[in-house]
Every structure is written in C-alpha cells, then in structure tokens.
Design a protein around this nucleic acid. Sequence first.
DNA 1: CCCGGCTCTTGACTCTTGTCATTTTTCCCC
DNA 2: GGGGAAAAATGACAAGAGTCAAGAGCCGGG
Lengths: 226, 226
Amino acid sequence: MNCQDRFGSILFKAEKCNLEEIDAAKVCSTYKKGEVVFQEGTYPFGIYCVNTGKIKLSHSGDDGREQIVRLAKPGDIIGYKALLSAERYTASAIALDDSSVCFIPKDLFMSILQKDANLSFEMMRIIASELRKAETKITHLAQKPVRERLAETLLFIKETYGVEQDGTTLNVRLSREEIANLVGTATESAIRLLSEFKKDGLIELQGKKIRLLNQEEITRTANLQD
Amino acid sequence: MNCQDRFGSILFKAEKCNLEEIDAAKVCSTYKKGEVVFQEGTYPFGIYCVNTGKIKLSHSGDDGREQIVRLAKPGDIIGYKALLSAERYTASAIALDDSSVCFIPKDLFMSILQKDANLSFEMMRIIASELRKAETKITHLAQKPVRERLAETLLFIKETYGVEQDGTTLNVRLSREEIANLVGTATESAIRLLSEFKKDGLIELQGKKIRLLNQEEITRTANLQD
DNA sequence: CCCGGCTCTTGACTCTTGTCATTTTTCCCC
DNA sequence: GGGGAAAAATGACAAGAGTCAAGAGCCGGG
C-alpha cells in the first residue's frame, strides 16, 4: 500500500484535475516512533495526511501535562485547524509508531479548497464530525468519573486502531501516561484503575499490551448512553 | 435591525444568486426566554441563524445534568453539525433571552453548500475554529481546577455577550446552575466559588447580575497561557 | 398581599482523585 | 548479559470537589 493509494481518502473527493495537482506537489516522509510531525506553537506550512502508522495529537497544558485530543490513523488528515484559521498549531503531532505521512503545501491546498466545493464540503463534514466528538468528550469530562472515562477510552482505542489477530489485544502500544492523557487524569490513577479492571477480569495486561477480555462489561463500566 | 440585516454574517459570503434564494426561503421566528429552538435527539430540518438575542447549546449528560457547549449570539449559525452529519441533534438549543432566529430549510442550504465553494470554505473555517476552542476546553477541563475554570468562564461570557453600559456588568442573566454547567462543575461549587470571588473583590453579585470588578485579577485567577 | 415553589446559599460530610514518595519492573544500550 | 534509566506499580496522604440537607431569599400567580 503506497503513499498514493492511501493518500487522502477525503482528498479523492477533489475534482479530477485537482487530484493530479495534489499528486504532483505532495511530499511523503516517514517518521519514527516518537518523532514530531509538527509542533504546537509553530506556524503551519500545509496539511498532512497519514499514510501508514499512528499519530497522536496533543495539547500541552499550562503545567506541561499533555492532553491527547485525537488519535489519527491512515487516511486521516491532520493539521487542518491551524491552517484554516491561519494561526499557530495548538497541538503537536507525534508518531506513536513508525509512520508515513504526506504533506501538501498550504497554498495549493487552500486554493483548491476555495475552488472545489466538493472538497470543502467533505472537509466540512469531517470537521463537523470531529466537533461533535469533541463536544461529547467535554460533557463526559465534566460529568463522568475517571473509571467510566477509562473504560470508554479503551473502547475508543479499539474503535480507532482495532485489535490484533487474536481479536482482543489493542493494536497499539501506549504508555500508561499516554492513556492517562487520553482519559484526562493522573498517570497513577490510570494505572490503579487498569489494575482494578484487570482484577475484575475486564482486561489483561502484559507490559503495554492490553487485551479486552470482557467487552460487554467494559461497555457497561463506560456507562454510555449517547 | 431586522432579520435580513442580521441574517448570516457568514451567509453573506454566499454568491449573489444564492443570497436571494436564501432570502426567499428563510423563515424567522421569535422565541421567548427559555423556549426551545431545537431539541437533542430529534432530526434537523435545516439550520438556524441567530438574529437577535442569546441562545445556549447544551448536551444533556447521562444523569440528566446538562453541559453547555456553546453560547450563540446574533450572527451565529446553530444546528449545523447535526445537519452536516445527517444525524440527530446532540445538543438542545434554548433561548437565554427573548430571541429572533431565522431558519433555512435543509435542502436549500445543503444544495447551496455543495455548489458554493466560497460558502463551504467559510463554514469550514468557522467550524474549525469551534473545534479549536472545544479542544482547548477539553484540555482545561482535564487539567485545571474549578476555580480557574470559573474565572475563565466569566471572561468567556464577557467576550461573548459583552457588558452593559457601566462597562463591568455582564450583559446576560444566567442562573447559577447554568454557570455551573458552563464551567463543568456542581451548582454548589459554582456558588461557593462565586462567593469567594466576591469576598476577594474580584466580582460583585446582585441576583443574577455579575459585575467584573477586577478583570486583571480574574485573568490571573484563570491562569491562562495559551 | 400572601402563599408556594423556585433558586440561591451555606454547612457538614464523604469520597473520588491527585500528589508525593518509594519500590519494583521493564527495557534499552553498551 | 548486565547496568542504568525510564516506566510501572503501590502505598500513604491531602485536598479538591461532589453530595446531601437545611435554611434564606426571591418571584410569580392566585
């Protein structure tokens, strides 16, 4: 699966001529696990599209603690908010795995967006759906206890990155700190609750591997109803 | 200032012909304080644009507590997320004051959006900026204590609805519960902290009137740095 | 004008969650 | 393979924040 294949599930919505333009101008690079694709506080020069691998997007809070606001997977576009608002990045993008990411220069992307109603329309839908999710997250952060949010986060990770062949092991390695930063809690709290989940037979832990043993019960613990 | 004047600061970006079409199809209605413009869980038939007045958008959480995710003012568009994703509303819109709101039918709006790159582009920018704010809110909810969030919320309300002629009284009447739902905390906590702020000379309280006496200090309390 | 039902306020208490400190484990890199 | 640093786990403690309960104040409707 090469760069072109994967590039921009969304961007395929672009008109024919634009697609070729994009193809010509894009640059694909690879990032090793832990490498920074773009850094909070800097100005954007274009947008990125995840080709292969996994990217986390995180805000760093005042005290240096980070909050992961999004997990990106192949086909996802990242870095569009800063570009669209012509401001600095408010989040950093960091590879969770070795990843391949394509870059499209700002000018090209913006000019196409302004011409191509189809593409703008699709982008709009995507962003609207992100906003929807963000608002739900706000509500849950404000109202749900950490335990429920952790369970929800485990399900979210599964939704996003899927599982390995065994059908239960989450297909991504996250540190406890990263999990905590997804949930929005202290690392120790995340660790403690993971241990509880394990004790209760909901999950199995082997290092950074997490197996969801009893998804029913995890769902119940997450207490979702919207 | 009539409906037409105010209608859709954004929609003015629409092409000329579309503007007339919109003008012809739109319907303006008034809502008394407390009345519902649209209800979480129902399907959208179009979008709304706030003409005059103030509208709150709130998710209701599992336990019935509500989380206010947005405050809309004249010129703002509401109800677009559900429309764009063709799903039910995830939030309810309720008038905080007597308000006038215009409605544009779904089909018209969607067809214009798909044809008019300019409009899609503008919508996209707006939604992207909302998303930006939402993500910052997520980080703050996860990392900041209630005291700081309350201070931040007071400043946010001022930003959104401004102040009265005296230059210090917030130009909106919110119940303590609504303030709490904006901050993401219990009503009692919000009340207690407001009392503290008052004791510390940051604000003055007279019923639902809130005067920001010492904005410097409120900003410091909010502890903003992004 | 007064009653009844709100919202607001305050106090007391509980408990979830965060912080700090320490130990144990893991995992690189030499 | 071993040493060392980072990550994970666990315990003890503190404190922020939520809940419950009771009283005060305010407001609209009869």
